[in-house]
Amino acid sequence: MPAIELEHVGKDFVVRRAAGRFRRRTDVVHAVSDLSFSVEPGSLVGYIGPNGAGKSTTVKMLTGILVPSRGRISVAGLVPTRQRTKLAGRIGVMFGQRVQLWWDLPLIESFELLRHIYRIPSQIYERNLSAFRQLLDLDKFLWTPVRQLSLGQRIRGELTAAMLHDPEILFLDEPTIGLDVIARQRVREVLLSANRERGMTVLLTSHDLTDIERLCSRILIIDRGRLIFDGDVDTLKARYGKERVLVVDLEEPGPALQLDGARVIRVEGPRQWIAFDGERLSAAQLTAAAAAQAPLRDLTVQEPEIEDVVRRIYQERL
């Protein structure tokens, strides 16, 4: 039985916009349209897309926060909004940008309160708590009030809070936003070990491609409410991840450069954007070739943004 299953799920919002001084216009926004996919237990899935694509809406429907307008959803075999409290005991949710812990109380008090709220048996609670204390190095700030924690410390606390009760499925919404490299690494390790040792299913939304790449065996891309890619990381990279962009500032504005294995995608005065296949050509080689054609004043290299990847996928879909 799949851990997560969506069939033809849609979600519409009615939005009232001001049209002129006194009138209001009612619009229907299709946040999600005809979404169908399923996730097997024990998978680590990345769920990505541009801002406003419908990621948060999907996660909210999966976790029982929102009722879908159409379609069928099943998470851990339950219907989220109809069996909300039962499901909540079996899943963990972490929003990177929201604080779930008790703001004024020491971190450990939040854990204790959650222990009672989730009705976690003492054995499991003790075991998990000591594991996370070690894995995430919590002891240094376990007794500090949450409002005094740094972002990295708070995220470690939030992650612990989301997993203390041994959830079958973990939903993460931007868990590493604002974290430094080391902290991100730690988060990834914790997720990987939970997935490996306890078979925890993970659905991760993130703007950080590195997180997605290192953690997820499968990637779902959503844009404007529709699923536009469902495959593994290698397929994604093979198709779109290799293209990089070299941005050069010429000494003087001039015509688009003619370069082998690269194409100029945009010209603005002295600045030109040159797209090239990162696997066949190195930035250094391309720079040399460009400099041979016209004197360069400055340059930068752009890596593919997820928005670019998605946009390219979307364009291909057309």
Partner: peptide, 17 residues
């Protein structure tokens, strides 16, 4: 602030929480 959602993801009634 959108934080009511945080109550909906816990296994207890929202009013209780």
């Amino acid at each position: 602030d959108g934080n009511f959602d945080l109550l909906l993801i816990r296994p207890r009634g929202t009013l209780f929480q």
